[in-house]
């Protein structure tokens, strides 16, 4: 019996993009947050270059406010796959006086990481930064290209994007420019979860239901922790929660959940009526929050 390979079209497209990055750029890097999307990217890169190793390092911009589970997971993954990991810290940018810590109820280091990222790009002369952003996440991201050219300041000029025709990718850039690459642009949240399930990819434990000390504000569930500002009248309670998206603690809200296995998580996502970024505090700042951040170099 002939054993015929029929591809999963979205996976094939992502692998095609990753190979274009390796072929068209001199110094690519994979931006790794420890979240499920960047973990998926690592698996895709593994597949794209097998049996050779992934031909680019991972870069983690550490806000210092990560969930410890994420960091632990990151180090394990890097070790298992023999990857090169570069870590650059927001704390260092703060100490160097390049950025100032936000204050008050909604203080977060989410915006600050842009500076640390741009500095790292300059330090290592990265010409392509691979990220796990998806177009279904957010309205401004729906218009993002697969190869998105940024200027020296990391800025996104949404009105002047190169059209992307068929699957031809134009990564030609000038010195100092760099390209943000989004191989899973066309995946949805459910696609990612189903992929993680089908491929039995390991993910950090905070994606599964667990008991956590939290408090409620603005209808969102916040982690009670030294890094997260909390009013004295905001009462800490123990709840069974999980995270749908993993940024740092100050900008990622939990959801009440009892999903303890991948099957249960996938079922929960399928039935969910709240969008993934609905639990992103950073997006709630204003309706155009993402677009404004992207214009100044945010991922």
């Amino acid at each position: 019996m002939s054993n015929l390979y029929i591809s999963n079209p979205k996976e094939a497209e992502s692998i095609h993009i990753l190979r274009e990055v390796a072929a068209q750029f001199e110094k690519p890097v994979l931006l790794f947050s420890g979240g499920k999307d960047s973990i998926t990217l690592v698996r895709l890169a593994q597949k794209a270059f097998y049996p050779a190793r992934i031909p680019f390092p991972l870069l983690h911009i550490d806000t210092g406010h990560n969930f410890p589970e994420t960091i632990e997971f990151r180090d394990q993954l890097v070790e298992e796959l023999g990857l090169e990991l570069i870590v650059r810290k927001v704390q260092d940018s703060i100490d160097q006086g390049k950025v100032t810590e936000e204050r008050g109820r909604y203080a977060s280091r989410n915006t600050l990481q842009t500076t640390t990222l741009l500095d790292a790009i300059e330090e290592f002369k990265f010409d392509a930064c691979i990220g796990g952003a998806r177009r279904d996440e957010e309205k401004a991201r729906a218009k993002e290209r697969v190869f998105s050219v940024r200027d020296d300041f990391g800025q996104w000029d949404e009105k002047n994007q190169r059209p992307e025709l068929f699957d031809m990718l134009n990564g030609k850039i000038h010195q100092g420019q760099n390209v943000r690459v989004f191989p899973i642009s066309n995946w949805t949240e459910l696609d990612v979860w189903e992929y993680i399930k089908n491929e039995t990819i390991k993910i950090p434990s905070i994606y599964f239901a667990h008991k956590r000390s939290v408090f409620f504000r603005d209808g969102l569930i916040w982690t009670a922790n030294e890094h997260v500002y909390r009013e004295s009248n905001e009462e800490i309670v123990e709840k069974m929660v999980r995270f749908r998206t993993v940024g740092d603690m100050t900008c990622t809200a939990a959801v009440l959940s009892s999903a303890e296995t991948l099957d249960e998580v996938v079922d929960e996502i399928r039935l969910s009526t709240i969008s993934e970024r609905g639990a992103r505090i950073d997006d709630k700042r204003s309706e155009a929050a993402m677009e404004k951040r992207k214009k100044v170099g945010y991922f």
């Binding site: 002939s2 015929l4 390979y5 029929i6 591809s7 497209e13 095609h16 597949k47 097998y50 049996p51």
Partner: peptide
Amino acid sequence: IQFFDQEYDEVAPGASIT
């Protein structure tokens, strides 16, 4: 004809293979 660590006898168009 390979896709990741699997070998195949035949491949249909649309696939990213080695």
